[in-house]
Design a binder for these strands. Sequence first.
DNA 1: ACGAGGCACCTGTGATCACAGTTTGACAGG
DNA 2: CCTGTCAAACTGTGATCACAGGTGCCTCGT
Lengths: 218, 218
Amino acid sequence: MHNHSEKFPDPPRTLSATVYDDLRARLLVGRLLPGDTISIRTLAAEHGMSAMPVREALKQLALERALTGALKRAYRVPDLTCGEAANLFQIRAVLEGGAAEAATPHLSARDLETLRRRTRQMDVAWHKQDAIRFLEANFRFHALIYSRARNDALLDLIENLFVRTGPWLAKGILSLDKPEDWLGEHEAIVAALERGDAALSRRLIEEDARWGMSFFQS
Amino acid sequence: MHNHSEKFPDPPRTLSATVYDDLRARLLVGRLLPGDTISIRTLAAEHGMSAMPVREALKQLALERALTGALKRAYRVPDLTCGEAANLFQIRAVLEGGAAEAATPHLSARDLETLRRRTRQMDVAWHKQDAIRFLEANFRFHALIYSRARNDALLDLIENLFVRTGPWLAKGILSLDKPEDWLGEHEAIVAALERGDAALSRRLIEEDARWGMSFFQS
DNA sequence: ACGAGGCACCTGTGATCACAGTTTGACAGG
DNA sequence: CCTGTCAAACTGTGATCACAGGTGCCTCGT
Protein backbone atom coordinates (compact mmCIF):
# COMPACT_ATOMS: atom_id res chain seq x y z
CA MET A 1 0.00 0.00 0.00
CA HIS A 2 1.25 3.40 -0.90
CA ASN A 3 1.56 6.10 1.69
CA HIS A 4 0.40 8.79 -0.68
CA SER A 5 -3.21 8.03 0.03
CA GLU A 6 -2.90 8.92 3.70
CA LYS A 7 -3.15 12.36 5.13
CA PHE A 8 0.31 13.77 4.96
CA PRO A 9 0.53 16.87 7.20
CA ASP A 10 1.11 14.69 10.26
CA PRO A 11 4.75 13.66 10.19
CA PRO A 12 6.53 17.00 10.20
CA ARG A 13 4.24 18.44 12.84
CA THR A 14 3.84 17.82 16.53
CA LEU A 15 0.99 16.04 18.26
CA SER A 16 0.22 19.13 20.26
CA ALA A 17 -0.18 21.13 17.06
CA THR A 18 -2.48 18.48 15.63
CA VAL A 19 -5.08 18.73 18.35
CA TYR A 20 -4.60 22.49 18.47
CA ASP A 21 -5.48 22.82 14.81
CA ASP A 22 -8.38 20.43 15.23
CA LEU A 23 -9.92 22.42 18.06
CA ARG A 24 -9.29 25.66 16.22
CA ALA A 25 -11.07 24.40 13.12
CA ARG A 26 -14.01 23.22 15.19
CA LEU A 27 -14.36 26.59 16.89
CA LEU A 28 -14.01 28.45 13.62
CA VAL A 29 -17.05 26.85 12.02
CA GLY A 30 -19.13 26.51 15.15
CA ARG A 31 -18.82 22.79 15.66
CA LEU A 32 -18.23 23.82 19.27
CA LEU A 33 -20.82 26.11 20.80
CA PRO A 34 -20.59 28.59 23.70
CA GLY A 35 -20.69 26.81 27.03
CA ASP A 36 -19.45 23.47 25.70
CA THR A 37 -17.02 21.89 28.11
CA ILE A 38 -13.78 20.21 27.04
CA SER A 39 -11.80 17.70 29.07
CA ILE A 40 -8.12 17.00 28.60
CA ARG A 41 -8.31 13.27 29.16
CA THR A 42 -11.45 12.84 27.08
CA LEU A 43 -9.90 14.62 24.12
CA ALA A 44 -6.71 12.64 24.61
CA ALA A 45 -8.65 9.40 24.41
CA GLU A 46 -10.51 10.56 21.30
CA HIS A 47 -7.23 11.32 19.58
CA GLY A 48 -5.56 8.19 20.91
CA MET A 49 -2.72 10.03 22.59
CA SER A 50 -1.50 11.01 26.02
CA ALA A 51 -2.97 13.91 27.93
CA MET A 52 0.22 15.92 27.56
CA PRO A 53 -0.19 17.28 24.02
CA VAL A 54 -3.87 17.98 24.64
CA ARG A 55 -3.20 20.01 27.73
CA GLU A 56 -0.73 22.18 25.86
CA ALA A 57 -3.18 22.79 23.05
CA LEU A 58 -5.96 23.72 25.47
CA LYS A 59 -3.69 26.02 27.44
CA GLN A 60 -2.71 27.82 24.27
CA LEU A 61 -6.29 28.23 23.14
CA ALA A 62 -7.14 29.54 26.59
CA LEU A 63 -4.29 32.00 26.36
CA GLU A 64 -5.56 33.44 23.12
CA ARG A 65 -9.01 33.61 24.66
CA ALA A 66 -10.48 31.01 22.35
CA LEU A 67 -11.31 28.98 25.45
CA THR A 68 -11.74 29.87 29.11
CA GLY A 69 -9.59 28.02 31.63
CA ALA A 70 -10.32 28.57 35.30
CA LEU A 71 -7.93 27.04 37.81
CA LYS A 72 -8.67 23.36 38.43
CA ARG A 73 -11.85 23.55 36.43
CA ALA A 74 -12.74 22.20 33.03
CA TYR A 75 -11.98 24.23 29.93
CA ARG A 76 -15.06 25.66 28.27
CA VAL A 77 -16.01 27.51 25.13
CA PRO A 78 -16.54 31.11 26.26
CA ASP A 79 -20.12 32.33 26.43
CA LEU A 80 -19.53 35.91 25.46
CA THR A 81 -21.60 38.74 26.77
CA CYS A 82 -22.99 41.10 24.16
CA GLY A 83 -20.44 43.69 25.20
CA GLU A 84 -17.51 41.35 24.78
CA ALA A 85 -18.78 40.23 21.39
CA ALA A 86 -19.21 43.84 20.33
CA ASN A 87 -15.61 44.53 21.31
CA LEU A 88 -14.40 41.63 19.21
CA PHE A 89 -16.39 42.66 16.17
CA GLN A 90 -15.14 46.21 16.59
CA ILE A 91 -11.57 44.91 16.37
CA ARG A 92 -12.47 42.74 13.42
CA ALA A 93 -13.88 45.76 11.61
CA VAL A 94 -10.78 47.88 11.94
CA LEU A 95 -8.37 45.03 11.29
CA GLU A 96 -10.20 43.47 8.35
CA GLY A 97 -10.93 46.86 6.88
CA GLY A 98 -7.25 47.66 6.82
CA ALA A 99 -6.41 44.26 5.39
CA ALA A 100 -9.01 44.56 2.62
CA GLU A 101 -7.77 48.00 1.67
CA ALA A 102 -4.20 46.73 1.41
CA ALA A 103 -5.25 43.62 -0.49
CA THR A 104 -7.41 45.30 -3.11
CA PRO A 105 -4.65 45.98 -5.68
CA HIS A 106 -3.32 42.41 -5.46
CA LEU A 107 -6.38 40.31 -6.26
CA SER A 108 -6.20 38.30 -9.47
CA ALA A 109 -9.09 37.39 -11.74
CA ARG A 110 -8.76 33.83 -10.47
CA ASP A 111 -9.13 35.10 -6.90
CA LEU A 112 -12.29 36.97 -7.79
CA GLU A 113 -13.77 33.86 -9.37
CA THR A 114 -13.00 31.88 -6.20
CA LEU A 115 -14.64 34.61 -4.13
CA ARG A 116 -17.79 34.34 -6.24
CA ARG A 117 -17.83 30.59 -5.72
CA ARG A 118 -17.56 31.06 -1.95
CA THR A 119 -20.44 33.52 -2.09
CA ARG A 120 -22.64 30.95 -3.83
CA GLN A 121 -21.64 28.32 -1.27
CA MET A 122 -22.63 30.67 1.52
CA ASP A 123 -25.98 31.29 -0.11
CA VAL A 124 -26.98 27.66 -0.34
CA ALA A 125 -25.66 26.91 3.15
CA TRP A 126 -27.65 29.81 4.55
CA HIS A 127 -30.91 28.64 3.03
CA LYS A 128 -30.25 25.14 4.30
CA GLN A 129 -29.67 26.51 7.81
CA ASP A 130 -26.28 24.79 7.65
CA ALA A 131 -24.33 27.04 9.98
CA ILE A 132 -21.12 25.02 9.73
CA ARG A 133 -20.86 25.12 5.94
CA PHE A 134 -21.89 28.76 5.95
CA LEU A 135 -19.18 29.78 8.42
CA GLU A 136 -16.59 27.69 6.62
CA ALA A 137 -17.30 29.33 3.27
CA ASN A 138 -17.48 32.73 4.95
CA PHE A 139 -14.07 32.26 6.52
CA ARG A 140 -12.49 31.10 3.28
CA PHE A 141 -14.02 34.08 1.49
CA HIS A 142 -12.47 36.55 3.90
CA ALA A 143 -9.21 34.67 4.38
CA LEU A 144 -8.54 34.68 0.66
CA ILE A 145 -8.93 38.44 0.49
CA TYR A 146 -6.76 39.15 3.50
CA SER A 147 -4.05 36.75 2.40
CA ARG A 148 -3.44 39.05 -0.55
CA ALA A 149 -2.50 41.87 1.81
CA ARG A 150 0.91 40.20 2.10
CA ASN A 151 1.01 40.55 5.89
CA ASP A 152 1.21 37.16 7.59
CA ALA A 153 1.07 38.57 11.09
CA LEU A 154 -2.12 40.43 10.24
CA LEU A 155 -3.62 37.27 8.77
CA ASP A 156 -2.85 35.38 11.99
CA LEU A 157 -4.54 37.99 14.13
CA ILE A 158 -7.65 38.03 11.98
CA GLU A 159 -7.84 34.25 11.97
CA ASN A 160 -7.64 34.31 15.77
CA LEU A 161 -10.59 36.68 15.88
CA PHE A 162 -12.57 34.42 13.56
CA VAL A 163 -11.92 31.53 15.93
CA ARG A 164 -13.09 33.56 18.89
CA THR A 165 -16.24 34.83 17.21
CA GLY A 166 -17.06 31.52 15.50
CA PRO A 167 -19.09 29.94 18.30
CA TRP A 168 -20.97 33.19 18.86
CA LEU A 169 -21.91 33.46 15.19
CA ALA A 170 -22.96 29.82 15.07
CA LYS A 171 -25.18 30.32 18.09
CA GLY A 172 -26.70 33.37 16.45
CA ILE A 173 -27.38 31.63 13.16
CA LEU A 174 -28.87 28.56 14.84
CA SER A 175 -31.18 30.73 16.90
CA LEU A 176 -32.85 32.18 13.83
CA ASP A 177 -36.02 30.57 12.55
CA LYS A 178 -36.33 32.51 9.31
CA PRO A 179 -33.34 32.58 6.98
CA GLU A 180 -34.80 35.69 5.36
CA ASP A 181 -32.37 38.12 6.94
CA TRP A 182 -29.53 37.23 4.66
CA LEU A 183 -28.60 39.89 2.16
CA GLY A 184 -25.89 39.23 -0.36
CA GLU A 185 -23.48 41.94 0.63
CA HIS A 186 -20.63 39.76 -0.44
CA GLU A 187 -21.39 40.32 -4.10
CA ALA A 188 -21.00 44.04 -3.54
CA ILE A 189 -17.65 43.38 -1.91
CA VAL A 190 -16.47 41.34 -4.87
CA ALA A 191 -17.61 44.09 -7.23
CA ALA A 192 -15.70 46.71 -5.28
CA LEU A 193 -12.60 44.56 -5.26
CA GLU A 194 -12.90 43.94 -8.99
CA ARG A 195 -13.09 47.65 -9.68
CA GLY A 196 -10.02 48.17 -7.50
CA ASP A 197 -11.87 50.59 -5.26
CA ALA A 198 -9.82 50.16 -2.08
CA ALA A 199 -11.70 52.71 0.00
CA LEU A 200 -15.08 51.20 -0.83
CA SER A 201 -13.79 47.69 -0.20
CA ARG A 202 -12.63 48.77 3.21
CA ARG A 203 -15.97 50.30 4.09
CA LEU A 204 -17.97 47.29 2.92
CA ILE A 205 -15.72 44.87 4.76
CA GLU A 206 -16.02 46.90 7.95
CA GLU A 207 -19.77 46.81 7.56
CA ASP A 208 -19.71 43.06 6.98
CA ALA A 209 -17.51 42.46 10.01
CA ARG A 210 -19.95 44.31 12.23
CA TRP A 211 -22.82 42.24 10.85
CA GLY A 212 -22.16 39.54 13.45
CA MET A 213 -23.28 41.95 16.15
CA SER A 214 -26.80 42.00 14.75
CA PHE A 215 -27.64 38.86 16.71
CA PHE A 216 -28.82 39.29 20.28
CA GLN A 217 -28.02 42.96 20.40
CA SER A 218 -29.78 44.29 23.45
CA MET B 1 6.24 37.96 60.34
CA HIS B 2 3.33 39.30 58.39
CA ASN B 3 2.55 38.03 54.97
CA HIS B 4 1.49 41.44 53.73
CA SER B 5 5.03 42.41 52.93
CA GLU B 6 5.46 39.65 50.38
CA LYS B 7 4.43 39.82 46.77
CA PHE B 8 0.89 38.63 46.68
CA PRO B 9 -0.10 37.82 43.10
CA ASP B 10 1.67 34.47 43.31
CA PRO B 11 -0.61 32.14 45.21
CA PRO B 12 -3.76 32.28 43.08
CA ARG B 13 -1.79 31.94 39.85
CA THR B 14 -0.09 29.02 38.22
CA LEU B 15 3.63 28.44 37.90
CA SER B 16 3.34 28.34 34.15
CA ALA B 17 1.74 31.78 34.14
CA THR B 18 4.52 33.11 36.35
CA VAL B 19 7.34 32.32 33.94
CA TYR B 20 5.11 33.35 31.03
CA ASP B 21 4.61 36.80 32.51
CA ASP B 22 8.29 37.04 33.35
CA LEU B 23 9.40 36.28 29.81
CA ARG B 24 6.76 38.59 28.40
CA ALA B 25 7.94 41.46 30.57
CA ARG B 26 11.53 40.85 29.54
CA LEU B 27 10.65 40.90 25.85
CA LEU B 28 8.51 43.98 26.23
CA VAL B 29 11.33 46.18 27.48
CA GLY B 30 14.11 44.60 25.46
CA ARG B 31 15.83 42.71 28.24
CA LEU B 32 15.89 39.92 25.68
CA LEU B 33 17.33 40.79 22.29
CA PRO B 34 16.76 39.29 18.84
CA GLY B 35 18.70 36.06 18.41
CA ASP B 36 18.92 35.30 22.13
CA THR B 37 18.40 31.60 22.77
CA ILE B 38 16.27 30.24 25.60
CA SER B 39 16.44 26.74 27.03
CA ILE B 40 13.62 25.06 28.89
CA ARG B 41 15.78 23.35 31.48
CA THR B 42 17.98 26.40 32.04
CA LEU B 43 14.98 28.62 32.68
CA ALA B 44 13.47 25.94 34.91
CA ALA B 45 16.62 25.89 37.02
CA GLU B 46 16.67 29.69 37.24
CA HIS B 47 13.12 29.73 38.52
CA GLY B 48 13.66 26.73 40.75
CA MET B 49 10.90 24.65 39.22
CA SER B 50 10.38 21.69 36.95
CA ALA B 51 10.71 21.94 33.20
CA MET B 52 6.99 21.39 32.73
CA PRO B 53 5.66 24.89 33.45
CA VAL B 54 8.51 26.45 31.50
CA ARG B 55 7.84 24.39 28.42
CA GLU B 56 4.20 25.46 28.42
CA ALA B 57 5.12 29.11 28.74
CA LEU B 58 7.65 28.90 25.92
CA LYS B 59 5.23 27.06 23.68
CA GLN B 60 2.62 29.72 24.26
CA LEU B 61 5.02 32.52 23.50
CA ALA B 62 6.08 30.69 20.37
CA LEU B 63 2.47 30.35 19.35
CA GLU B 64 1.87 34.07 19.59
CA ARG B 65 5.06 34.61 17.63
CA ALA B 66 6.88 36.24 20.53
CA LEU B 67 9.46 33.45 20.23
CA THR B 68 10.42 31.10 17.43
CA GLY B 69 10.32 27.37 18.14
CA ALA B 70 11.75 25.07 15.51
CA LEU B 71 11.21 21.36 16.01
CA LYS B 72 13.79 19.86 18.36
CA ARG B 73 15.78 23.08 18.39
CA ALA B 74 16.16 25.72 21.06
CA TYR B 75 13.64 28.51 21.37
CA ARG B 76 14.98 31.86 20.26
CA VAL B 77 13.94 35.49 20.23
CA PRO B 78 12.93 36.15 16.61
CA ASP B 79 15.33 38.21 14.54
CA LEU B 80 12.80 39.97 12.37
CA THR B 81 13.50 40.99 8.83
CA CYS B 82 12.72 44.57 7.95
CA GLY B 83 9.66 43.40 6.04
CA GLU B 84 8.28 41.46 9.00
CA ALA B 85 8.90 44.38 11.33
CA ALA B 86 7.18 46.72 8.91
CA ASN B 87 4.15 44.41 8.87
CA LEU B 88 3.97 44.45 12.66
CA PHE B 89 4.22 48.22 12.88
CA GLN B 90 1.57 48.52 10.18
CA ILE B 91 -0.78 46.48 12.37
CA ARG B 92 0.17 48.50 15.41
CA ALA B 93 -0.66 51.70 13.58
CA VAL B 94 -4.18 50.67 12.60
CA LEU B 95 -4.94 48.98 15.93
CA GLU B 96 -3.52 51.66 18.20
CA GLY B 97 -4.99 54.40 16.07
CA GLY B 98 -8.43 52.93 16.53
CA ALA B 99 -7.87 52.44 20.25
CA ALA B 100 -6.69 56.01 20.74
CA GLU B 101 -9.66 57.39 18.86
CA ALA B 102 -12.05 55.39 21.03
CA ALA B 103 -10.21 56.31 24.23
CA THR B 104 -10.00 60.06 23.67
CA PRO B 105 -13.33 60.98 25.28
CA HIS B 106 -12.64 58.89 28.39
CA LEU B 107 -9.32 60.28 29.61
CA SER B 108 -9.39 62.01 32.98
CA ALA B 109 -7.22 64.92 34.08
CA ARG B 110 -5.38 62.47 36.32
CA ASP B 111 -4.67 60.28 33.31
CA LEU B 112 -3.24 63.21 31.37
CA GLU B 113 -0.95 64.06 34.27
CA THR B 114 0.30 60.48 34.37
CA LEU B 115 0.91 60.61 30.63
CA ARG B 116 3.02 63.74 31.05
CA ARG B 117 5.04 62.01 33.74
CA ARG B 118 5.67 59.06 31.45
CA THR B 119 6.79 61.46 28.74
CA ARG B 120 9.36 63.00 31.05
CA GLN B 121 10.57 59.54 32.08
CA MET B 122 11.03 58.65 28.44
CA ASP B 123 13.00 61.80 27.84
CA VAL B 124 15.55 61.18 30.57
CA ALA B 125 15.85 57.49 29.68
CA TRP B 126 16.45 58.41 26.07
CA HIS B 127 19.28 60.79 26.85
CA LYS B 128 20.81 58.20 29.15
CA GLN B 129 20.67 55.63 26.35
CA ASP B 130 18.69 53.49 28.79
CA ALA B 131 16.64 51.46 26.33
CA ILE B 132 14.92 49.38 28.97
CA ARG B 133 13.58 52.29 31.00
CA PHE B 134 12.64 54.08 27.80
CA LEU B 135 10.63 51.16 26.46
CA GLU B 136 9.01 50.56 29.82
CA ALA B 137 7.82 54.15 30.10
CA ASN B 138 6.76 54.12 26.45
CA PHE B 139 4.65 51.03 26.97
CA ARG B 140 3.00 52.41 30.07
CA PHE B 141 2.27 55.65 28.23
CA HIS B 142 0.47 53.86 25.43
CA ALA B 143 -1.14 51.20 27.60
CA LEU B 144 -2.78 53.83 29.78
CA ILE B 145 -4.35 55.49 26.76
CA TYR B 146 -5.61 52.29 25.21
CA SER B 147 -6.98 50.97 28.49
CA ARG B 148 -9.46 53.83 28.40
CA ALA B 149 -10.93 52.50 25.18
CA ARG B 150 -12.83 50.00 27.34
CA ASN B 151 -11.98 47.06 25.08
CA ASP B 152 -10.00 44.40 26.91
CA ALA B 153 -9.56 42.20 23.87
CA LEU B 154 -8.11 45.10 21.94
CA LEU B 155 -5.74 45.88 24.79
CA ASP B 156 -4.53 42.29 24.81
CA LEU B 157 -3.79 42.33 21.11
CA ILE B 158 -1.88 45.58 21.32
CA GLU B 159 0.13 44.34 24.27
CA ASN B 160 1.03 41.24 22.25
CA LEU B 161 2.32 43.45 19.46
CA PHE B 162 4.39 45.45 21.93
CA VAL B 163 5.96 42.23 23.14
CA ARG B 164 6.76 41.17 19.60
CA THR B 165 8.25 44.50 18.59
CA GLY B 166 10.05 45.09 21.90
CA PRO B 167 13.31 43.31 21.06
CA TRP B 168 13.43 44.95 17.64
CA LEU B 169 13.01 48.42 19.13
CA ALA B 170 15.62 47.74 21.78
CA LYS B 171 18.07 46.61 19.14
CA GLY B 172 17.35 49.74 17.15
CA ILE B 173 17.82 52.08 20.09
CA LEU B 174 21.02 50.38 21.21
CA SER B 175 22.46 50.65 17.70
CA LEU B 176 22.22 54.44 17.70
CA ASP B 177 25.27 56.48 18.72
CA LYS B 178 23.64 59.86 18.86
CA PRO B 179 20.49 60.27 20.91
CA GLU B 180 19.68 63.37 18.86
CA ASP B 181 16.94 61.76 16.82
CA TRP B 182 14.39 61.86 19.56
CA LEU B 183 11.61 64.37 19.07
CA GLY B 184 8.97 64.81 21.72
CA GLU B 185 5.94 63.80 19.70
CA HIS B 186 4.36 62.46 22.83
CA GLU B 187 3.65 65.94 24.12
CA ALA B 188 1.67 66.64 20.97
CA ILE B 189 -0.29 63.45 21.60
CA VAL B 190 -1.11 64.51 25.13
CA ALA B 191 -2.20 67.91 23.88
CA ALA B 192 -4.50 66.36 21.29
CA LEU B 193 -5.99 64.06 23.90
CA GLU B 194 -6.51 66.94 26.30
CA ARG B 195 -8.38 68.91 23.65
CA GLY B 196 -10.53 65.86 22.98
CA ASP B 197 -9.54 65.84 19.32
CA ALA B 198 -10.10 62.15 18.56
CA ALA B 199 -9.21 62.33 14.87
CA LEU B 200 -5.93 64.11 15.54
CA SER B 201 -5.08 61.73 18.37
CA ARG B 202 -5.60 58.82 16.02
CA ARG B 203 -3.34 60.32 13.38
CA LEU B 204 -0.57 61.15 15.83
CA ILE B 205 -0.69 57.72 17.42
CA GLU B 206 -0.54 56.05 14.01
CA GLU B 207 2.50 58.16 13.21
CA ASP B 208 4.12 57.27 16.51
CA ALA B 209 3.48 53.57 16.02
CA ARG B 210 5.20 53.65 12.65
CA TRP B 211 8.19 55.41 14.22
CA GLY B 212 9.73 52.08 15.17
CA MET B 213 10.24 51.34 11.49
CA SER B 214 12.70 54.21 11.17
CA PHE B 215 15.51 51.94 12.37
CA PHE B 216 17.31 49.84 9.80
CA GLN B 217 14.88 50.66 7.04
CA SER B 218 16.56 49.58 3.85
C1' DA C 1 48.17 21.15 8.90
C1' DC C 2 43.67 20.47 7.23
C1' DG C 3 39.39 18.04 6.50
C1' DA C 4 35.91 14.59 7.38
C1' DG C 5 33.67 11.48 10.34
C1' DG C 6 31.90 10.14 14.78
C1' DC C 7 30.46 10.52 19.37
C1' DA C 8 28.86 13.08 23.43
C1' DC C 9 25.84 16.56 24.91
C1' DC C 10 22.24 19.52 23.98
C1' DT C 11 17.58 20.40 22.53
C1' DG C 12 12.25 19.75 22.69
C1' DT C 13 8.48 16.13 22.82
C1' DG C 14 5.59 12.56 24.85
C1' DA C 15 4.27 9.23 28.58
C1' DT C 16 3.26 8.15 33.23
C1' DC C 17 2.58 9.06 37.90
C1' DA C 18 1.21 11.90 42.05
C1' DC C 19 -1.46 15.62 43.93
C1' DA C 20 -5.00 19.07 45.10
C1' DG C 21 -9.10 21.38 44.27
C1' DT C 22 -13.84 21.10 42.10
C1' DT C 23 -17.98 19.10 40.79
C1' DT C 24 -21.55 15.96 41.13
C1' DG C 25 -24.58 12.58 42.67
C1' DA C 26 -26.38 9.70 46.10
C1' DC C 27 -27.87 9.05 50.65
C1' DA C 28 -29.55 10.32 55.18
C1' DG C 29 -32.21 13.51 57.96
C1' DG C 30 -35.75 16.83 58.44
C1' DC D 1 -40.68 15.60 49.12
C1' DC D 2 -37.15 18.69 49.82
C1' DT D 3 -32.56 19.76 51.65
C1' DG D 4 -28.07 19.50 53.53
C1' DT D 5 -23.95 16.78 53.71
C1' DC D 6 -20.36 13.75 52.47
C1' DA D 7 -17.80 10.85 49.47
C1' DA D 8 -16.28 9.34 45.04
C1' DA D 9 -14.99 10.63 40.50
C1' DC D 10 -13.90 14.20 37.90
C1' DT D 11 -10.89 18.34 36.74
C1' DG D 12 -6.13 20.67 35.70
C1' DT D 13 -1.22 21.16 37.47
C1' DG D 14 3.48 19.73 38.41
C1' DA D 15 7.35 16.27 38.69
C1' DT D 16 10.06 12.72 36.75
C1' DC D 17 11.49 9.66 33.32
C1' DA D 18 12.32 7.95 28.47
C1' DC D 19 13.16 9.07 23.75
C1' DA D 20 14.54 11.01 19.24
C1' DG D 21 16.59 14.44 16.67
C1' DG D 22 20.06 18.39 16.14
C1' DT D 23 24.67 20.66 17.20
C1' DG D 24 29.16 21.01 17.80
C1' DC D 25 33.52 19.75 19.31
C1' DC D 26 37.19 16.55 19.25
C1' DT D 27 39.81 13.16 17.26
C1' DC D 28 41.62 10.34 13.72
C1' DG D 29 43.11 9.82 9.05
C1' DT D 30 45.30 11.73 5.10
